[in-house]
Write a protein that binds this DNA or RNA. Sequence first.
DNA 1: TCAAAAGTGTTAGATATACACCCATGC
DNA 2: GCATGGGTGTATATCTAACACTTTTGA
Lengths: 220, 220
Amino acid sequence: MRAGSLQALLWERAREPHAGRWSLPGGRLGTSEDVEASVRRQLGEKVDVRGVPHVEQLAVFSAPERVPGERVVATAFLGLVPYDVDPAIPADTAWHPVDALPPTAFDHEAIVHRARNRLRAKLSYTNIGFALAPPEFTVSALRSLYSAALGYRVSATNLQRVLSRRGLLEPTGHTAPPGPSGGRPAALFRFPGKGLEVTDPFAVLRPPGGNRPAGSTGSS
Amino acid sequence: MRAGSLQALLWERAREPHAGRWSLPGGRLGTSEDVEASVRRQLGEKVDVRGVPHVEQLAVFSAPERVPGERVVATAFLGLVPYDVDPAIPADTAWHPVDALPPTAFDHEAIVHRARNRLRAKLSYTNIGFALAPPEFTVSALRSLYSAALGYRVSATNLQRVLSRRGLLEPTGHTAPPGPSGGRPAALFRFPGKGLEVTDPFAVLRPPGGNRPAGSTGSS
DNA sequence: TCAAAAGTGTTAGATATACACCCATGC
DNA sequence: GCATGGGTGTATATCTAACACTTTTGA
């Protein structure tokens, strides 16, 4: 997520198969780590990205011919980095807009699009924005973020109201200086939580009584 | 799903490790099949359940010590069978209520609970009920199904209205005969679609315009 | 004083639950 | 006729998008 569009970090393959095409960073699972630990390790070792605020499983891709040669089963992950973080990445890697990917290797385009859909869905009913936003931000910066990720124009007015109602916007008391052409200085906010929370679990078909007890999320 | 409660098909382990405990049906992935094909094959071969209307990936379980001995990575699935189907299952397998499981092997209890949570969520925003209901059903039968799966009392009145609005209830024109104590005969309905569809994708934070084009689901 | 950006008040629409009331059948 | 289960009509509550309007700054 940078420069006003949702972007994915891809790595240009030097060797066959699919030399010259772009692929997602990844690697083999070690014998003493689980898949999430493995993803975080690969991100650190291969593209030097650390401290990713949120990582979650997407799906297993296992079609027998998805990769030439011996069958490879991949567990795909969605990992999110705040838009103000710009890690030093190797020369053969680059960020690419998710809506205009270069030629990709294997089934990695499908994986990226699946990740995008997951992100879009969770922006609506969770606090997942915390993983894409800097520690402090203005509502209009958040509006740009949501617009870029969702693919349609989001109103800052209503975004603030919806997120405030859910307790996802905490004023820090600070303000950001206005731009060169003036304007009222924007208040700065933060996300109160640091982990993923489901904020609107009963979007429809809610249980009777309408009472929504305070802390009732949990995902087993 | 049978006898008024959500149930899972488990298999009693005869051998160590975890002999006597109950485990989910499963097995190794073949070299020429993907994970979904493998799941359907295992269900057919091991517990003689075929034609499962809906199967979906849950998550990968990969903790190094989840199974004694050599590390085993499992891709867990949620599979649903209509409540009127009662396949002939082997002697060492049985249906168990998801809310009162017997001692389970490995991390299978966590997997079952995760599956239950996934089902509960999707009952609210998809047509996943089609996989649990018979071809034709009354609204009150559907009410029992939803109540058992969700764990709270669902009103038949409102269930009918909500599902009708979404186009998920199609009258067949037939009626079911009343019970021995009388009562108005119930109309029979069917689910129009046979595959999973997201019916309420924009529960919150919907895009501007409010126009929800007819066929806009898709999950990549 | 004016333009620009931020933020608030208010309205209207959609969707859901709750509950009262009517319908059709068996005894 | 009356009990029983099925189905509809009608509030009411909640949440959201839309939009007008006010606030605060720089030139």
